[in-house]
Design a protein around this nucleic acid. Sequence first.
DNA 1: ATAATTGATCAGGAACTCGTACTTCTTCTG
DNA 2: CAGAAGAAGTACGAGTTCCTGATCAATTAT
Lengths: 150, 150
Amino acid sequence: MVRETDYNQGVALNIGLLLYIPYRALEDRVFEAVTAAGFTDITMAQSRVFQRISQHGSRVTELADRAKVTKQTASALVQALEDAGYVERVPDPTDARASLVRVASRGAAATAAASAEIGRIEAEWRRELGASRYDRLVRDLEVLQRLTDI
Amino acid sequence: MVRETDYNQGVALNIGLLLYIPYRALEDRVFEAVTAAGFTDITMAQSRVFQRISQHGSRVTELADRAKVTKQTASALVQALEDAGYVERVPDPTDARASLVRVASRGAAATAAASAEIGRIEAEWRRELGASRYDRLVRDLEVLQRLTDI
DNA sequence: ATAATTGATCAGGAACTCGTACTTCTTCTG
DNA sequence: CAGAAGAAGTACGAGTTCCTGATCAATTAT
């Protein structure tokens, strides 16, 4: 909760805002592209959880941790995703209490639409920064991601 | 809304997630620090709007644009911030319909608490990446911020 | 002078999010 | 081995966020 001291003067923003502003802009564009592709029944919060499903499926509690929401929130969002056909749930073979949330075919199709838009955005950002600078940015962000992720 | 193809294998995440994950982790830590400092009556959404107030004050509509929410949402959040003493409103001398939202002294104090925590986080990230790499990351992010911001 | 646009708030409602509580299953400890 | 402790996931209740549509007054455009 830092207020930039003088936005219009190009004074340095804090690192949090420097991460947030591009992220939020991308998120909006991707959301619009996904909606335009016909996936009109998914919300931003749902998609944020959806993104954290791993290839072999994820538990609700894992998704909660990784999306930084409570178990109840994750559970409700997963339920909505399942109802809309984006995910499916299968029993977790290692624990009778748990289930694995997996991406369903509708989810995979939506993912393809999102990926296409992200690719377009990346191309723009890469043009703006230059290829080597952009690639380095990605590598550096990967370091921060590994440092801060669950 | 892209699902990473295999999270545990360190496969590349999309740029959106690479920005979001560190950002979200920072946001949580800063929020906790601000709460611990006694500012327990502000919410995350309120602080996101608060952060976009410029030095000479901002209009509600400007905050809405910059925080990427509707005017009504911004108005409601500003009202809550004002009620809690974080901001004040003064008439905009250039337009009788508008007012300027400015940071009040309680807001400035909360900002100080947040800044201290951000400084601590930055020091960690700088240690992880190295100073020159971190500085370059910041500069690159500034380019993206300017490209995507309002 | 009139029409169109804009700044900000109201009203209503859905979605998001959390704390507390609970049941069942799994792991830990004596 | 048995009981205690902890974990997975959902239910309940409630506050917050966010949106659409609407409104009114001020400003800008024609």
